[in-house]
Structure formats: structure tokens, C-alpha cells
Write a protein that binds this DNA or RNA. Structure first.
Length: 491
RNA sequence: GGCGGCGUAGCCAAGUGGCCAAGGCAGUGGUCUGCAAAACCAUUAUUCAUCAGUUCGACUCUGAUCGCCGCCUCCA
């Protein structure tokens, strides 16, 4: 039993074996900090949060590095627009980033280095590249020479001649080859600068990840991740820099996740169709967002829609309802009563964890993992419904034990982490706020109706029920009395 | 133009060379109920874009065709 991961570099699923037994080193490209994060950033952070949690669950020690790009063109431009410094702008949006990520319950990586705190490491790396002939100075800039690295293009599956035929590369007189990319940019007036052997300037985008990953994870490490759009040019260039400088393989396994789309289009600022995390969190519980994100395999596109979020809400509620039902059981039955759990169901429940692992071992198939949770919930519900007052306490214990594992497995995706009864109650309270009726009124009307029902005055009883229904309150009469819910489709 | 991916029931979405093609949402039937609703249970694809081929056997492998998407410029 071991984990198989799809590796972008080899374009196939491979058995995952860390370089150092039981220790996984992983580097993920984080945000460029100049704006609020959108749902795509959430997918990225959540995907790797899940991957790291699963690796830890499988017994690995994980060193997880995720950087902040806090200096680049976009930051400089945005800071100028807002009449502030790049430092202030970047720091501000890093704080906003944490608000969003914490809200989604995302675990902090081991270390979150900032580019500007590693200028010296970048300068060292650039100097090494120049010394060994992979880079050259031209004017005040330093460029990486793609022709010096014969394997250039191996990650993205391109070759230099094809790319030049595409000819969307801007012609720059200072470059030897149009595909050469900048390692160090000579400063322009008004921009933040750092001193370097090539004059004052600032680093190019790709070099920071090569420098920081080397510092914290070494020349070669296990996993490098990011969005599919980073494969080219960002990761291709990182690879060329790191392997050029280190004379060692850069990364064993490259993991790239798919995009979040809206109406099947990629989110982009130019289309104006991007949604920020905080817009969505206003409307949906963080676990609903997680449920939605993990309902599709991480490499596939994921289309955001109102319907999809409602489906996710319904699904999560179903799981929570199951947990709540088991949580509320009391184990005060008769030990002499034989178990009513069938052998088949017992096997299904005890094999849950193994089946979950099989799903997750297969390239972190969270969609399948969720199916196993639902499968389990169905059986738990069935048994829970069959229990009577004098059922064997052993049965209740068995359900509870299963539930402990159930919650643990759901927790890898960050689901079912709240107390189920509280979750459902808070949800109800939140919904109630949007209605022009309060809980006391509802309770009073229910009491009145039950008095009517007591004397079999069905007309009056139904009238009260209809009045509540007009307020979107639905009643459910059960053996324990009358409960009420808010109509789901009125959300 | 180059590279890569996708096309599975009303919608979403797994899957594997060979037991009945997971699961969710919606729908339908049942249990429950004074009647309901909710909840729970059950049920819903002779078929996996199309057409060929490989194979004893393909949704799963190969090729072609049609359609959709992404990257090649900053991008999760």
C-alpha cells in the first residue's frame, strides 16, 4: 500500500517514494501579495493543505514551505496607484491572506518565506549561474540563457523552436535569445532596489523560488506544487535555474492542480468574473467551500456556481445530520439483546478506513473519498434508525467507534470538524435571521397547534401549520414532539 | 501554429482491461404521520461523444473524427 501521485514531469502516476524515508519535503508557490485572494487561491491552498494532511496521516513527517512573492511589477504598479510603498501593500495583503486562509481552517505551512527577505540568496544563485555559463549580464539586467540548458522545456513538454514559432514572446534587444528570461532587473527610477554585483536592481520572478527552496529544502526535494498555469514559464524556469546552479535534479514530483472556472471560463480580472474568498465566505460555511473544492479531483477543472454550492451544502448537511444522530444516541439498552448490525454492514464499516486510503493513495482522489464517507453515512443512518430503546449497548458503542474514525478521515479534507449538533443549530439560527419571525413565536405557535391536535381539531392545526409555512417554517411531528426547520430552497 | 487536458445518467462527479459502471444533488416509490413535511430506506445509465482497430473480453489501450477547455504574456 503506497501513495501514487501524478507527476507533471513524467506525465504519469508514479509510486511516491520520498528521498529521505518518512520525510517529505514540499514547496508550493504561494501568492503574489497585491490584492484579495480569490476562490482559485483557495483551491490551491486547500489542495495542498489536504495533501499535507494526508501525508502526515500516512505517517510522514512533512516540511512544507510556501512562499510569498512580495516584490514584482504588479505590486510596484498597485502600490503606486494607491500611493503607498510596495512593502506596505504586500504586508497588508499578506495579513488579508491570513484572514482568508484561517477562515477556511487551512493549516499554516512549516515556513512561509518572503522573497524580499532572501535577496542575498538570490544574488548568490545568480552569481553561480553566471559563473557556470547559464546566465549573462546585458546592460543592467541579468538573463538566463535557455540555450545553455539543453533540457529546457522538459517540464512543460515544449521545445525552443516550437515556442519561438508561437512568437508571442516580446522582442528584447538585450536578450541573446527571445526566450531568455530575466534573473535580475536593473532598477528604474522610483522602484525599490537592492544593491548587487550588477548594479542596483531587483530580482526576477522565478529566481526567488529557486533560492528559497534550496535554502530550506536543499538542492533536491520531493514535491513542488502550484496551479497548472505555473507550469510554464514559472516552473520551467525555476527548474532550469536550480538544475543549472545545483548540478542536481531539482524536484522528484511536480503536482499541479486545475483551475476554478465560472460558467466554464477561467476566472480573470479582465473578464471581471473572479470571486474573492471573502465574498464567498459571507454566504457559505467554510466547510461547504471545502466540500465543494474536494468534490472534484484536484487536477480537473472545477466550475463554481450557485447550484454547485447548494449541492455541496446539502451534501455536508447530510453528513452532519448523520453525525448528530449518532452523537445523540444513549447506550442504555439490554446487553442480552443480539446485535442488529448485519455482518455485511459490519464489514463495510470496519473496512471504511482501508477503502478511504485506497482512494486517497490514488493521487489524492478526494471525490472518491467523499463517496466512501457517504457510503458509510448511509449504513450508519440505517442502523441508527433500526435501534430501539432496548437494543444492545454494544451496537451503540460500535457506531460511536466508527464515527470516531469517520470524523478523523473527514478531517483530512477539513470536514466535520465542528460539533454536529452545534453546526446544525447554528445553521438554523443563521437562516432564521433572514426571516421575519423569531424562535419564540414559532415555539408558541407550535404549542398552540399541539393543543389543537390534542383535541383532534385538525382544521385549526393545519391552519397554524400553513401560517408557519407561509413564513418558510416547516414542521415535523415526531415521537419526541414537534420540531421545525427552515425550508431549504428559500435560502 | 506548438503543447496538454476533457467529453460518463436531468445536473455534478469517481472509476477500472473482465463480479450488477462509485457517490452526491434533483426525481420517483416506501416507512413514518390525523393528513403532511422533514428524516430515513429503496430506486434511477444493457451504457460511458462518434467511428474504426488491438484483445477471448474495452468505458478503460491505439488511431481517426466531432465538440469543449487550458498553457504558450502576469496568473492558483
Amino acid at each position: 500500500m503506497s501513495i501514487r501521485i501524478y507527476n507533471t514531469l513524467t506525465r504519469r502516476k508514479e509510486l511516491f517514494t520520498p528521498l529521505e524515508p518518512n520525510h517529505v519535503r514540499i514547496y508550493v508557490c504561494g501568492i503574489t501579495s497585491y490584492d484579495y485572494c480569490h476562490i482559485g487561491h483557495a483551491r490551491s491552498a486547500l489542495a495542498f493543505d489536504m495533501i499535507v494532511r494526508y501525508l502526515r496521516y500516512r505517517g510522514y513527517t512533512v516540511t512544507y514551505i510556501r512562499n510569498f512573492t512580495d516584490i514584482d511589477d504588479k505590486i510596484i504598479n498597485r502600490a503606486a496607484e494607491q500611493n503607498t510603498t510596495t512593502e506596505e501593500l504586500a504586508d497588508r495583503f499578506i495579513r488579508e491572506f491570513y484572514i482568508d486562509m484561517d477562515g477556511l481552517g487551512i493549516d499554516r505551512p512549516t515556513l512561509e518565506p518572503k522573497a524580499t527577505a532572501h535577496i542575498n540568496e538570490m544574488i548568490d544563485l545568480i552569481a553561480e549561474l553566471i559563473d557556470s555559463g547559464f546566465a549573462y549580464q546585458s546592460g543592467n539586467d541579468v538573463y538566463y540563457s535557455v540555450n545553455s540548458f539543453p533540457e529546457y522545456g522538459k517540464l512543460s513538454g515544449r521545445n525552443l523552436s516550437d515556442m519561438q514559432a508561437g512568437a508571442r514572446v516580446s522582442i528584447n534587444e538585450q536578450k541573446n535569445n527571445p526566450m531568455d528570461f530575466v534573473l535580475w532587473k536593473g532598477s528604474k527610477p522610483g522602484e525599490p532596489t537592492w544593491d548587487s554585483p550588477w548594479g542596483p536592481g531587483r530580482p526576477g520572478w522565478h529566481i526567488e523560488c529557486s533560492a528559497m527552496s534550496r535554502k530550506y529544502l536543499g538542492n533536491t526535494f520531493d514535491i513542488h506544487g502550484g496551479g497548472q498555469d505555473l507550469i510554464f514559464p514559472h516552473h520551467e524556469n525555476e527548474l532550469a535555474q536550480s538544475e543549472g546552479a545545483n548540478k542536481a535534479p531539482f524536484v522528484t514530483t511536480w503536482i499541479h492542480h486545475g483551475f476554478v472556472t465560472i460558467r466554464d471560463e477561467k476566472m480573470s480580472k479582465s473578464l471581471g468574473n473572479f470571486l474573492t474568498i471573502r465574498d464567498i465566505v459571507k454566504q457559505y460555511h467554510p466547510e461547504v467551500i471545502r466540500f465543494f473544492i474536494f468534490s472534484t479531483h484536484y487536477r480537473n477543472p472545477l466550475d463554481f456556481s450557485e447550484t454547485a454550492m447548494q449541492d455541496a451544502t446539502a451534501g455536508l448537511d447530510r453528513l452532519y445530520s448523520c453525525v448528530a444522530a449518532i452523537d445523540c444516541l444513549t447506550a442504555a439498552g439490554d446487553l442480552n439483546v443480539p446485535s442488529l448490525i448485519s455482518k455485511k454492514d459490519r464489514v463495510k464499516l470496519t473496512s471504511m478506513e482501508e477503502r478511504y486510503q485506497q482512494a486517497m493513495d490514488n493521487d489524492f482522489n478526494t471525490a472518491q473519498a467523499q463517496a466512501i464517507l457517504f457510503d458509510t453515512a448511509k449504513i450508519l443512518n440505517k442502523i441508527e434508525q433500526q435501534l430501539t430503546e432496548n437494543s444492545s449497548p454494544e451496537d451503540v458503542h460500535f457506531l460511536r467507534d466508527t464515527l470516531v474514525v469517520f470524523k478523523k478521515l473527514a478531517g483530512i479534507m477539513g470536514l466535520l470538524q465542528e460539533d454536529a449538533v452545534t453546526y446544525l443549530r447554528q445553521k438554523k439560527a443563521a437562516l432564521l435571521e433572514g426571516l421575519d419571525i423569531d424562535e419564540l413565536t414559532i415555539e408558541a405557535m407550535i404549542k398552540e397547534r399541539n393543543e389543537a391536535r390534542g383535541v383532534r381539531d385538525w382544521a385549526r392545526s393545519d391552519q397554524i401549520r400553513d401560517r408557519l409555512l407561509a413564513k418558510n417554517i416547516e414542521l415535523k411531528d415526531g415521537p419526541e414532539g414537534t420540531a421545525w426547520v427552515i425550508k431549504r430552497n428559500q435560502i
